[in-house]
Simulated scan of single mutants.
Amino acid sequence: MFSHILAGVDGSKESFRALSFALTLAKQFNGTVDAMYSIPPRIYAELAEREVKVEEPTGDVKFISMLQQEENHIRDLVQSYAEKEGISIGFHTRVGDPVDSMMEFVSTSKIDLIIVGSSGKGMADRLILGSVSTGIVHKSPVPVLVTKPES
């Protein structure tokens, strides 16, 4: 039924709830999952030039951008979720509008379901701030499942 699922992740608990659901479905239907982390351009500009000190397990010290540190952290979490379910996962990072990034990926892949989390914003917040999940629902050529936050 669903052989190739795309889950949007942004580091929030809602996005990881969506990822968990995607992995559960993929396991049930013997499918695959790709996770996409989209970095809005304003965040990229803000964090790409800032560096943090990282100590390697070998004791070596290096400096990486805060953006790279965040991406590594999210990738590691995504992979740990997938390992718990025994599923291999593709991880993709894009710089750009999250909705447009996901739609571009869907157009070049054989995705048959998108799963994203919702923060539970009200209508007024969505009108002012926008909503990735709402944008994906409106633009997606494939079914979209939006997970809601826990009550």
Rank of each mutant, 00 (worst) to 15 (best):
Val9Trp: 01
Gly11Cys: 05
Lys13Leu: 12
Glu14His: 14
Phe16Met: 04
Arg17Ala: 07
Ser20Met: 05
Ser20Thr: 13
Phe21Lys: 13
Phe21Asp: 02
Thr24Ala: 14
Thr24Gln: 05
Ala26Arg: 08
Lys27Met: 00
Gly31Ala: 04
Val33Phe: 02
Asp34Leu: 01
Asp34Ile: 08
Ala35Ser: 14
Met36Phe: 13
Met36Lys: 09
Ile39Ser: 02
Ile39His: 07
Ile39Leu: 11
Pro41Gly: 03
Pro41His: 07
Arg42Phe: 14
Ile43Glu: 14
Ala45Thr: 12
Leu47Phe: 12
Ala48Arg: 12
Arg50Glu: 12
Arg50Tyr: 07
Glu51Lys: 13
Lys53Thr: 15
Lys53Ile: 15
Pro57Asp: 05
Thr58Tyr: 04
Gly59Ser: 07
Asp60Glu: 13
Asp60Ile: 02
Asp60Trp: 03
Lys62Arg: 15
Lys62Tyr: 15
Phe63Lys: 15
Ser65Glu: 09
Ser65Leu: 05
Gln68Cys: 04
Glu70Ser: 14
Glu70Ala: 13
Glu71Lys: 10
Ile74Tyr: 04
Leu77Tyr: 00
Gln79Pro: 00
Glu85Gly: 01
Ile87Val: 11
Ser88Pro: 09
Ile89Leu: 07
Gly90Glu: 11
Gly90Pro: 06
Gly90Ser: 05
Phe91Gln: 05
Thr93Phe: 00
Asp97Ser: 10
Pro98Cys: 12
Val99Pro: 08
Val99Asn: 01
Asp100Met: 01
Glu104Pro: 00
Glu104Arg: 09
Phe105Asn: 11
Val106Ile: 14
Ser107Tyr: 05
Lys110Gly: 10
Lys110Leu: 05
Ile111Met: 07
Ile111Val: 14
Ile111Gln: 12
Asp112Gly: 06
Leu113Trp: 04
Ile114Phe: 10
Ile115His: 06
Ile115Pro: 04
Ser118Phe: 05
Ser119Tyr: 08
Ser119Phe: 09
Lys121Tyr: 07
Ala124His: 02
Asp125Ala: 15
Arg126Ile: 08
Arg126Ser: 05
Gly130Met: 02
Gly130Glu: 05
Ser131Trp: 04
Ser131Asp: 04
Val132Asn: 01
Gly135His: 12
His138Thr: 02
Lys139Gly: 02
Lys139Val: 01
Ser140Lys: 08
Val142Phe: 02
Val142Ser: 03
Pro143Arg: 09
Pro143Glu: 06
Val146Arg: 05
Thr147Gly: 03
Thr147Glu: 10
Lys148Ile: 07
Lys148Glu: 02
Glu150Asn: 11
Ser151Arg: 05
